[in-house]
Amino acid sequence: MAKLFNVSSSPHVRSEETTRSIMMDVAIAMLPATAFGVFQFGLHALLVIIATVFACVVSEYAFEKVTKKPITISDFSAVVTGMILALNCPSEIPLWIPMLGGVFAIVIVKQIYGGLGQNFMNPALAARCFLLISFAGKMSSFTLDGVTTATPLNVMKTAWKAGESNLGVDLMAMFIGKIPGTIGEVSVVALLIGAAYLVFKKVISLRIPLTYIATVAVFVFIFGRQDLNFVLAHICGGGLIFGAFFMATDYVTSPITPKGQIVFGILLGVLTGTFRLFGGSAEGVSYAIIISNLLVPLIERYTLPVAFGKEGKKA
C-alpha cells in the first residue's frame, strides 16, 4: 500500500513557463511602442533605450558579482526594467539621467531587497519617480518635430480648469501617437498591439488593466466633465494604457487574488483620476502605481480566499 503514495514538496502544479520566457514576452510586447517611439522621435530616443537597458544589465551584473550572488542577467528582468524606464522618459533627455535611473532601479529598489521577486514596488516606476523628483525640468520637457510643446493632458487640463468648451486635443492623433510625450506612451494603437500579445500568450490577465481604465473613465466623467471626448482623451493620453497593461500587471508588485486585483485596479483608477484632476501635474499614473504597490500586502490580506473546509468567523 505504501508504494501507492508519493509525498513530494510543493509546488505540485508546474508550468513550462520560466522567468526568462515571461520577461522575453514582455520585452517583445513593448517592441511596437518602442519602434513607434523611435520612428516618432528619432535616433536619440533609440540611444536613450539602449543606454538605459545597458545601465540596468551592467548594474545587476556588477552588484551580483560584488556580493557573490548568482548572476541573473540572463533572465531578461533587467532588460525589461530598462525598457520600461526608458519608454517612460522624454526622447531628448540627456543619456546619463535615465542611466542613473537604471542604476537606482536595479541596485536600490531591486537588488538591495533581495532581487527579483523580493522588491516591494516596481523598480522601473520607482526609478522614474526618483528622476521626476530629482530632474523635474528634464523629465517634463517634451518635443515633437523639434519643437518643445505641452502634452495633450496639460493642454486639456488648462482648458478644463478655465471652463473652456474646446479641450484643444485631437483624439485621433492621440490614438495613433502623433503627439508629444514620453518615448513609449504616445501611441495607443502600438501599446494595444503589445497588450494583445501579452493576453494571447497568457502572460497577463485583463482583470487589472480593464478595472483600472474603467475606474479612471468613471472618475473623470463624474468629477471632471460629463463629455465622452474628455473621458476618451484621459484614456488615450499620458501613460494610462502603458501603465495599465505593462506596469500595473507586474507579477511581483500586484495582488495574486482575483478580488484583490479588482480592488487594486479600482485603487489605481481613483488615485490616477485624483492626481490628474486635482493634483499639480496633469499625469499621475506612476505615482498611483507606486502607492498602490505599497498597499498590495494589505489588499491581499483582506481578499485572500478562505481555505476549503475552514470554518468562517462566528457572528
Rank of each mutant, 00 (worst) to 15 (best):
residue 145 D to A: 15
residue 65 K to I: 00
residue 48 V to T: 11
residue 303 T to Q: 02
residue 65 K to V: 03
residue 28 I to F: 12
residue 48 V to G: 04
residue 258 P to M: 05
residue 229 N to T: 15
residue 206 L to N: 02
residue 122 N to T: 12
residue 301 R to F: 15
residue 50 I to R: 04
residue 207 R to V: 09
residue 240 L to R: 01
residue 216 V to M: 12
residue 110 K to P: 10
residue 178 K to I: 15
residue 27 A to M: 09
residue 230 F to N: 09
residue 214 A to H: 06
residue 96 W to V: 08
residue 3 K to Q: 06
residue 35 A to N: 00
residue 213 I to W: 06
residue 205 S to N: 12
residue 135 F to H: 06
residue 195 A to N: 04
residue 122 N to P: 01
residue 14 R to M: 04
residue 141 S to G: 07
residue 25 D to I: 00
residue 61 Y to T: 11
residue 104 F to C: 08
residue 188 V to W: 00
residue 116 L to D: 14
residue 232 L to W: 06
residue 37 G to A: 03
residue 167 L to E: 10
residue 44 H to E: 09
residue 160 W to N: 04
residue 156 M to Y: 07
residue 182 T to A: 08
residue 185 E to A: 01
residue 92 E to W: 10
residue 157 K to A: 13
residue 24 M to P: 00
residue 311 E to Q: 13
residue 89 C to T: 15
residue 122 N to K: 04
residue 243 G to P: 00
residue 279 G to D: 12
residue 227 D to S: 10
residue 291 I to S: 02
residue 307 A to R: 12
residue 68 K to D: 11
residue 248 A to L: 01
residue 247 M to Q: 07
residue 134 S to R: 07
residue 262 I to L: 14
residue 232 L to E: 04
residue 253 T to M: 11
residue 191 L to R: 02
residue 78 A to S: 14
residue 259 K to R: 12
residue 199 V to S: 05
residue 220 V to G: 12
residue 3 K to A: 05
residue 274 T to N: 10
residue 298 L to H: 08
residue 44 H to Q: 12
residue 287 Y to I: 15
residue 130 F to E: 02
residue 97 I to D: 08
residue 156 M to G: 02
residue 103 V to T: 04
residue 23 M to Q: 01
residue 246 F to I: 07
residue 35 A to I: 09
residue 181 G to T: 13
residue 37 G to L: 07
residue 265 G to C: 09
residue 256 I to Y: 10
residue 33 A to R: 02
residue 15 S to N: 12
residue 3 K to F: 14
residue 223 F to M: 12
residue 79 V to S: 06
residue 16 E to H: 11
residue 11 P to A: 02
residue 65 K to R: 13
residue 89 C to V: 15
residue 303 T to Y: 11
residue 237 G to W: 07
residue 277 L to P: 13
residue 280 G to K: 15
residue 236 C to T: 14
residue 116 L to M: 13
residue 34 T to E: 09
residue 305 P to Q: 06
